[in-house]
Design a protein around this nucleic acid. Structure first.
Lengths: 320, 320
DNA sequence: GTAATTTATGAAACGCGTATCATAGCAAGA
DNA sequence: TCTTGCTATGATACGCGTTTCATAAATTAC
């Protein structure tokens, strides 16, 4: 396979001139440019991108850390990142971590080794101490409130969101309110728990650990939650469900079991996924695609750190 | 940032020796190895992976082309690929194409430019003529029957599957059978249509184009299909639905509308996703994770082409 | 005891495109 | 006419790790 040197020789020019042609540098005469292009054509020249990367010190790859690819929340987030990446001619390397720290480290190491130019962490298991070790190697962007840290982030204020949603349910008359989240630990979950406890305190409601449901990620997890509810002596009358698809599972199963929504159980979903519209789920619209886009742009801007808070919108439908 | 030359100088050895230490080559004395390691430690040496890539001519990246990331079918497929990739220390570059040919070309070009070592195409829009242009640059692996072509593949015989499934429904007494697929064109859809038509011919049943539903990918698409059914004068009594999640949508909506399953409408799903179990969907189990694993291994083996057919298993539950 | 291996080490070439610097011709402005 | 400044081109260094080849010393083999 021909390289730039071969092309230069064949076209009777220097490698510099060939490089100029490759990069559309203006200072190349028409004749030489022609000759170079023809030589490239003739020998089916392919620029070795690894040499470019070595020379330029960047790869036009951006790493994206997500726990699951087949989850609508992360699906939309990635969609947003990808949308913007295309514009800037960047490609994405997806790291599906299943919340395993070793996988997160793999991603961080790729940043360290300059195999990716930046890393977007949409959700993580590892601690900040680990992150800090890798900050020197390139930009790391977060989809969680990381104000006060030396990184960029685009985030939802989950504390505020949750608090407002709880107040909304309270105003609708609910006093036994529970919630479902994806996992127990994690920044977002902690913020939500804090909001939940603060809210309970304010309204002088008692805290019941059984009102919190973890590991709610998929349609079938919603079914499981309802199954648990039916076994409870004093089940909640309303639930905040942090994924519409889980809410959809709950509603489906409730219908099967004759549990009336919202009368027996009020459900507020999150994300405003398409399924929410179809199933008339009252939900908090989170502009995930937009968040993804912003995350990407922050990843590109390696010099300055910024923090963007994104607002959510309540979509009132028929499940509360 | 220190490079291999600096480390060599500091440790008082040649770059070759440093390289040997980096690659665990046996012929390095204990003392020199120590010295090198210490120098690396002290200067926080990071091997420039792009230089390695340039030198080795490979990147340990494998491209994966999928139309959608947030779809359970492709989610599981990618899971299988990723599972195997980890073992071999490869990373994946995911190309979400939305079935746009330009995106597929992007992936092919990354192969051409040696930015990825191989490309796995799980589903495509482009034609074989385009693929053929890129075959010379590296292995391209397919998740569709591509026997007779100069590539590797792991696939389901969708013709056989569909035909068998149709016979199963026929044996259950159904004479008005329709089906739902993801998209109209595409290798799999064509195979299925052929099976459908051949089956109708064999059983002397007439072909009704309204019995075929396209663009069925998500939960909400299932809802739409049922809505269409209710508007039909002579709707099918049984449907093959090529995704459990779509079947789940159909069943959910049927329940809402009082359509009895399987009496009014029999539904056979595909994939045996978790949702199929929960909703008691009769389905064809497709071992997607296993297929993903095999695809990856084929991608690694660049010299020989192979074709593996994967068998499916009927899981009888309550929707047929 | 000499030949054949094995161990240990380094110089230099290689993979390949980009960036800097130097050079030279030519045109516009003073 | 002389100075700038732009156009055009190439030599060379650079980014950096791997690999080949050569050499020397230390073992093992016969």
């Amino acid at each position: 396979m021909a390289n730039i040197k071969d092309i230069a020789k064949i076209a009777g020019v220097s490698v510099t001139t060939v490089s100029r042609v490759l990069n559309n540098h203006p200072y190349v005469s028409k004749e030489k440019k022609e000759a170079v292009l023809q030589a490239m054509e003739e020998y089916n020249y392919q620029r070795n991108i690894n040499a470019v990367h070595l020379s330029k010190g960047k790869t036009f790859l951006i790493g994206v850390v997500i726990p699951f690819t087949n989850h609508p929340y992360f699906g939309l987030l990635v969609e947003g990142i990808a949308k913007e990446a295309v514009k800037y001619n960047y490609k994405l390397v997806l790291f599906q971590t299943n919340y395993e720290v070793v996988r997160e480290i793999e991603a961080l190491e790729m940043l360290q080794h300059k195999q990716i130019d930046a890393l977007i962490i949409c959700s993580r298991s590892c601690g900040w101490d680990l992150i800090d070790e890798y900050l020197e190697y390139g930009p790391i962007i977060f989809c969680e409130d990381s104000r006060g840290r030396n990184v960029s982030s685009t985030f939802i204020d989950h504390y505020k969101c949750f608090y407002n949603a709880l107040e909304y349910l309270y105003d609708k008359g609910h006093r036994k309110i529970g919630y479902c989240v994806g996992r127990k630990s994690g920044t977002n979950s902690r913020q939500r728990e804090k909001a939940y406890r603060d809210f309970l305190d304010k309204e002088h409601l008692s805290f019941d650990p059984d009102y919190i449901f973890y590991e709610c990620l998929k349609f079938e997890d919603g079914v499981k939650v309802v199954q648990q509810l039916t076994r409870m002596d004093n089940p909640p009358t309303a639930l905040l469900v942090t994924s519409d698809i889980v809410a959809a599972g709950m509603i489906t199963y409730c219908k099967e079991k004759g549990i009336l929504i919202p009368d027996d159980l009020a459900i507020m979903g999150f994300d405003n996924q398409p399924v929410a519209k179809i199933m008339h789920i009252t939900t908090l619209e989170i502009p995930l695609v937009e968040i993804g886009e912003k995350l990407f742009l922050q990843a590109l801007d390696s010099r300055s750190n910024s923090h963007e808070e994104i607002n959510v919108k309540l979509i009132e439908r028929q499940t509360v």
